[in-house]
Nucleic acid binder design. Sequence first.
DNA 1: TTATGGATATAACGCCGTTATGGATAGCGG
DNA 2: CCGCTATCCATAACGGCGTTATATCCATAA
Lengths: 218, 218
Amino acid sequence: MLWSVSSDRQEPASPVRRRLLDEAARVLAEEGPAALSARRLVKAVGASTMAVYTHFGSMPALVREVMREGVERFLSRVDAVAPGTDPVRELTELCRVYQEFARAEPDVYAVMFGGSSLAGFELTQGDRKMGVALLRHPRDAIRRCIASGRFRADADADLLVRQLFVQMHGLAQLAHAGYILGIYGPEDVLAGLLRDFAVASGDDPEQAARSVRSGLGE
Amino acid sequence: MLWSVSSDRQEPASPVRRRLLDEAARVLAEEGPAALSARRLVKAVGASTMAVYTHFGSMPALVREVMREGVERFLSRVDAVAPGTDPVRELTELCRVYQEFARAEPDVYAVMFGGSSLAGFELTQGDRKMGVALLRHPRDAIRRCIASGRFRADADADLLVRQLFVQMHGLAQLAHAGYILGIYGPEDVLAGLLRDFAVASGDDPEQAARSVRSGLGE
DNA sequence: TTATGGATATAACGCCGTTATGGATAGCGG
DNA sequence: CCGCTATCCATAACGGCGTTATATCCATAA
């Protein structure tokens, strides 16, 4: 598919916008939220402060764009999880991918779900709904767990997916804050949570443990 | 008990310090972290910016003091949970108190556990250890669940309390961020989490549901 | 060619945390 | 009582922040 013949890029006349976004993502990843400032970004790309306002309108709006691109990366990871014959294993893989993203981009994750304000940026109700929409994948996996008889027939996928969301978020945040210490680390807690989630939902303890081990990559 | 005879107060010569801390807690509770600034605090108490530095040394140090007092309020709530004959109910009550505190003082909670920087304040390793020390109460409750036969004899209280911590933190943060929406609210998720936690730990499903309902206040 | 509109640089405004300086004051040894 | 010292505090400033008003480019449309 030849798609380079003409102007397929959406912003051909403004590489400044792209460079600002890339620099923002870089600073956020390498030095954290405190290092993110308009003056620093424009200095790095050799522009003046007006660049932020002509291309984004405000710093919170720039942060929103950074977050939006982070969500896309998150989705591409989730979509890469292949369905298989074991729905409990698939659910485990989704959770593993969730934790991997939160660990790879902790500050983007914190903006998405952690209530981090980050230069005055605040979540809108639309942002939250988009976040909740990410629960569709695991909810469907839970439904397959029920349909396949692994989970109880009267289990409630909508309630269970919220419980799972809470567990994944709590683990991601506490692990990032350095609060999972002592004899058990984040991996141990993740394995325990997933096994107990399946068991409480009706799965056989041995089978649940096998599926979780398999989904976490042995 | 007559305790007003002489100087019981710890800071009799510096009401400025106390008034700054109270104003900081008030602003944090009523207008959120973004409204907290040294200049605003000193203006409210009728002092100059130097007051912050003579009494605290820096804004992060003032925030640390606010957090420290928040931890004390948290502990006083936890200590108010009376032990009873039903350890699962007691565990549930501890979790209810946890959620009540996080809901009553969400910004103090976010500083304690949420990784919120709040005016440049950062957690020290000592702060984290102090936070982990708060897990002693629920861990002991879990041990009583095991000892009483409600939980499996080979259940691991140290791992389970971390799993419970993750769940309570995740629920507190997502509820505060407005992410628990749709047909099920935070109370439903809390009840489901606690019931499933007990069931996966070996408790009888009916008995678990009864204890959780009772511990959440019917 | 001229006109128009968008991107940009400059400089400023009002915040912020922090600090250097100097003045007030309280306690205390003489 | 005097003078010394130490503490608290007000003033003013510094550099950095997000943001904006203004003016200047410059490419494109008429």
